[in-house]
Design a protein around this nucleic acid. Structure first.
Lengths: 232, 232
DNA sequence: GAGTGGTCTAGACCACTAG
DNA sequence: TAGTGGTCTAGACCACTCG
């Protein structure tokens, strides 16, 4: 068994509350025995769970489940798009503008040549039918060769991953607060000057190539992010 | 040599720009040879750098330096206090209120018994003498047995770590945007109703015990956070 | 095909906690 | 002191890229 499989199994068990009574995972020897795997596999699997913030280690004592019921919050470390954040809820999009054009000032942000072909997409993101965020996104046509309104009305991330077969690897994010302008406020059902939580997101493929840069203005009363920070 | 030592050495070299020309680290065999260590040591050291967002791996190709010059930004994953975020700048504090009392409604947040002794500290945090954030923090006296204004005017984190010998392990954070009230706005030199970037921070010791819970209101024009998200 | 990082084995000993 | 997780060795083979 691969350690990533074991990590998935353990994560499901944790989420189901299987270890809630003791608050800790079985010991390494027990896991080795129970799943018939080596210590390498067990330790690598658990290391993934530690990175995800699901458990934390106490040497000499055990691997403890990290309670973090952040129901309804957005994970700052998520690189899988907004849809994956709200299982059981309806995440939809309303395209405000979608155009293919050449990179101008955007070329700095996209680290591409001036004149490179890009898609520019503005969307209102809705959660259960309510305005949740405004997203301004740029995609390099080199990696995303086609995009239309139908796709953009759904999950662009799924399209990129499942239909185009691209593999996102990591993302750099900036977060800050700003005032909404009139146009943004109208879209979100707020007033001009109201706060917005702003996230700039540069997404890279697993080979290190930047393919998408976006800025998202979140409804300040509806969006909360969580982060499980670890001492490295 | 321990892998954590090697990681430190490599991080310093990366920060000095040693690998800027090629954009990638030496190969594993080269690092093994150069530092006289085993592959275990090399791979564990690099894994730490990957977690920190300093490099990213491309199988079959190499370990590439991840450019992330976030000068002047706050690291969301930081668990070392604000002072460590701005080397070369003056981070100071002005105590607004400091009291020792018993936990009331706070006991939920602090996961402690109602009536447990706590320190409650409100501080204006200044960056280079300018108002930067307002911090409301609670410390369990069980872990932080003493605190006074002199300490709070400096870095409470350093005090906890170096003088009390406590070892922070991890932290849970919530981030959102809110409007400032009049009192907060005055302290920050802003107007009531202006945005604030709010961070709720629950800090745990390495043994998993919660010892500190805080809420910080950051000046929306001055504070920007960054996060280097990784696909796990 | 050579070279890269990724996975895996089968052990050993160390550091820390209180099962 | 027994049991826990942490570090480490010395190999082997696999998956992927194009140095």
């Amino acid at each position: 068994m691969k350690y990533r499989e074991l990590a998935k199994i353990l994560k499901v068990e944790i989420d189901k509350g299987k270890y809630h009574d003791t608050g800790k995972l079985p010991t390494e020897p027990e896991l080795m025995e129970h799943f018939g795997v080596t210590r390498y596999c067990v330790r690598n699997a658990i290391a993934l769970l530690v990175d995800l913030g699901d458990v934390y280690p106490v040497q000499g004592s055990g691997m403890f489940v990290r309670e973090n019921k952040r129901e309804g919050c957005l994970n700052i470390n998520n690189t899988r798009g907004m849809t994956s954040e709200f299982p059981g809820h309806a995440v939809s999009s309303k395209v405000i503008k979608l155009e293919q054009r050449e990179a101008g000032k955007d070329s700095t942000r996209l680290k591409c040549a001036s004149g490179a072909k890009i898609y520019s997409v503005s969307r209102l993101r809705l959660l259960d039918g309510e305005p949740f965020a405004i997203e301004y996104a740029l995609y390099l046509k080199e990696f995303v060769p086609y995009l239309n309104e139908e796709i953009a009305n759904g999950s662009i991330y799924s399209y990129i991953r499942e239909d185009l077969g691209l593999i996102p690897g990591f993302a750099d994010k900036l977060m800050y607060a700003r005032k909404l302008d009139h146009g943004q406020a109208d879209l979100l059902g707020l007033s001009a000057g109201d706060p917005a939580l702003v996230v700039e997101d540069d997404a890279y493929l697993s080979n290190g190539r930047l393919f998408n840069a976006g800025t998202v203005y979140y409804h300040y009363e509806k969006a909360t992010f969580f982060n499980l920070a670890d001492l490295k």
